[in-house]
């Protein structure tokens, strides 16, 4: 995937801060949870960008901020050449046809009181995309078939479907408006491994056939490895490494990425037992009070073990920016070093 094309989605310095209110009778803002704190990424047409990170690093918030579902508190999101941050509901409406979201929880993402037909039809009705009842039925039928379900069952309620099937319904709903970009917020995390495979295959198939781009948010590295073209790693509200998939898994340069990858279990027991594990110590710092300089330094194995004191000074005071380490590969570390972990 060369980077000479124009990105369809371009995020610069995205910020989403949640105010912490304290004080007695009169509530004042005493601080902020900086869930997303200066995030940059690009999504190119036709590719899958995987966004990984620990729980609580701000992945879901990023997804929702990009969509303006939770309005960002700062930064810029340019989608198809238009700035999204700051747009009102009315202005967002036409744009939302081109970028859609698939949620994580198949049990909560469908209205339990509507039959599946209504759930998939709703976006079509709201945006007035069909002329009459017959066309609506036809479109819904096609959508349901596309995700691998039987259209005869659309008069049933979500409660009568399994988790995997419900997720497919969610995907069908997302596809109703024929978007160009899908933001998938941990779409398979709530499913069994075997069902995950089915849904992932469906997603890949759809991407090919409909020419979609995905922002695939997940915490499961093996899933990300399977479906992504490029991968971005997030820590405490910022992107700390981006690379093409194979490049990232072969030559991670950021200590955090290296630690993450070293935690992936290997199928070969002999290899698994003999490998060198990188253990990160400590807890994730509070997003309301991120560490100065490099955010990862409080848990960084490099910081703790390999650096001299003068080198550590830099980590303490200067925040590392994303710098190029090769073709399409950037990471934010003062002492980045490519290491083979897997």
């Amino acid at each position: 995937m060369t980077a000479t094309r124009e990105p369809i989605l371009s995020v610069r310095g995205l910020e989403k801060h949640f105010p912490i209110k304290g004080g007695g009778l009169i509530k004042r803002t005493v601080g902020a949870v900086r869930a997303v704190d200066g995030l940059d990424l690009d999504l190119y047409p036709g590719e899958v960008l995987g966004l990984v990170g620990e729980s609580g690093c701000g992945k879901s918030t990023t997804g929702r901020a990009i969509l303006n579902l939770q309005p960002a508190t700062g930064g810029s999101v340019v989608f198809q050449g238009r700035e999204i941050v700051g747009l009102g509901r009315k202005e967002m409406r036409p744009l939302r046809r081109d970028i859609q979201i698939v949620f994580q929880d198949p049990y909560a993402s469908l209205n339990p009181r509507l039959p599946v037909f209504d759930i998939v039809a709703e976006p079509l009705i709201i945006h007035g995309l069909t002329k009459d009842e017959a066309e609506l039925r036809e479109r819904v039928r096609t959508l349901v078939e596309t995700v691998g379900l039987n259209p005869e069952h659309t008069n049933r309620y979500p409660a009568e479907f399994s988790g995997g099937q419900r997720q497919r319904i969610g995907i069908a709903r997302a596809l109703a408006l024929e978007p160009k970009v899908l933001v998938l917020d941990e779409p398979v995390s709530a499913l069994d491994v075997s069902i995950q495979a089915g849904v992932i295959n469906l997603l890949e198939d759809l991407k090919e056939r409909l020419g979609l781009s995905y922002l695939f948010i997940a915490h499961d590295l093996s899933v990300v490895r399977h479906i992504s073209d490029r991968v971005a790693v997030m820590y405490l509200g910022k992107i700390i490494e981006v690379a093409p998939r194979d490049e990232l898994f072969d030559r991670p340069t950021h200590p955090y990425t290296q630690a993450l990858l070293s935690a992936i279990p290997l199928p070969d027991p002999r290899l698994e037992r003999s490998r060198q594990r990188i253990i990160i110590t400590g807890d994730v710092p509070s997003p309301a009070n991120p560490p100065s300089g490099c955010r990862f330094r409080t848990r960084c194995q490099k910081f703790a073990g390999e650096l001299t004191d003068t080198q550590r000074e830099k980590c303490l005071t200067v925040e590392p920016l994303l710098e190029s380490r090769g073709e399409g590969h950037t990471s934010a570390c003062h002492y980045a070093e490519a290491t083979k972990v897997l």
């Binding site: 409406r93 939302r96 979201i101 929880d105 993402s109 209205n111 709703e122 709201i126």
Partner: peptide, 16 residues
């Protein structure tokens, strides 16, 4: 709940 978020995202009005 997520289905409400999805509906809001689809552009359903508050009354809807």
């Amino acid at each position: 709940r997520e289905f409400v978020l999805a509906a809001r995202y689809s552009g359903v009005s508050s009354a809807g």
